[in-house]
Design a protein around this nucleic acid. Sequence first.
RNA 1: GGAGGAAUGGCAGAGCGGUCGAUUGCGGCGGUCUUGAAAACCGUUGACUGUAACAGGUCCGGGGGUUCGAAUCCCUCUUCCUCCGCCA
Length: 426
Amino acid sequence: MLELRILRNEKDRVTEGLKKRNLPDEVIDLVEEIIVMDDTRKKSQSEMDAILAQINQISREVGDLMKTGKRDQAEDLKTRVAELKETNKVHEESLRNAQRLLEEKLITLPNIPHVSVPFGKTPEENEVFKTWEGPLPSLPENALPHWELAKKYQVFDMELGVKISGSGFILYRQNGARLQRALINFFLDEASAAGYEEIQAPLLVNSDSARGTGQLPDKEGQMYYVERDDLYLIPTAEVPVTNIYRDVILKETELPIKLTGYTPCFRREAGSYGAHVKGLNRVHQFDKIEIVRIEHPDRSYDALMEMLQHVEGLLQKLELPYRILRLCGGDMGFASALTFDFEVWSAAQQRWLEVSSVSNFETFQTHRMKLRFKSEQGDTKLAHSLNGSALALARIVASLLENHQTPEGIRIPDALVPYFGKNRLS
RNA sequence: GGAGGAAUGGCAGAGCGGUCGAUUGCGGCGGUCUUGAAAACCGUUGACUGUAACAGGUCCGGGGGUUCGAAUCCCUCUUCCUCCGCCA
């Protein structure tokens, strides 16, 4: 949620930023509407406060009068308070309404894109920020897509996933199960080595947590929901991990906070069908190692670059062809101010697959979560939050299988051999 | 699942209808003393809102109620603790 203060003080920057997201004019106009609503809110609030101040004052006088036995005078004051309370009901009501309306509107505004975010509406307009050095691998004529390779080498079984759960659920077996475990351990070790504290978090979260990181109300339909217990299955470790610090005031010296966690991620992916969902391209449950950082506002963009390097290092170690995109305004997530996506080349499908998304949310999440820090000067300020996938497994497996296929089997990159136990999957 | 108890500032812990936003201790910060540190002593130390700055307002787990007045009384929800039952 955007800070009202920013709307009021930097209206031009806000409206310019929102235009980058290609939002309709009605949304842009909301900024002005919200400011007007806030004026109304302030007015009601101060009127109410004045009356409350009177009531407090009179109540004290009543106390004194009662003690000194002046009951008649006390009775007069009591009726006066009753009148004031009656008047106050009106203000209370309008304050509640103003606040509710304000909140409803404010929560619909996405984050303001960073200045470096390019204009654009669709994924095609994302800016290629960096591409790996080597050429895209050229595979032999008989190269197979990962879902064929999976059958050939006993990596995963789509039919069993369907039998047990439904479409979009994968059952990994033999080589695949071991490869999953190898990748998870590899990614966690890399994150630990980079100074991230390893977290094992709950996979079901309450609505406060889902709201804290912005999944509610924006992505409600994308999450699995357990109605009986009012809990959501996490769509990413970002939710439980970032919410560790919901409602927390940190000391400035505690920053930065660097956390990592492996979790399965559950996504309904409602409305996604067709060729692009084939195999591991889009599934309801996948494994992901997430890195999360809570940063001082002055350092958050440096931190973002560090995260980028970390993820890039992983892809290099896995010897996968990748590129980094700076997302355009139209393609960015709701809560993000700047997002870089990593894509790996799916050689057999001849297309790029998104495997990581690294974002700075600035104060968008921390405002909602009340995640603050106390500065050296003693004032409390909102921290910045960032996160990124490092990495998402399913598509990495897809890319690994396709790019490293050889007539003798799937070549395992050197960095992964100690985890997988052998240098070839066959 | 059943029975009982509890929830107060960073922590511990008083207050149980009227200057209580809250006694006190610890911790933190500043100072005195000291070459420096410790100890001792003195002072200071919650958040939100509001204002140009004051003032004012709100917050004692959440929500609702009683009252002129609620941290204190009542209802309700949540969480934690103890005991019993069940169980990986």
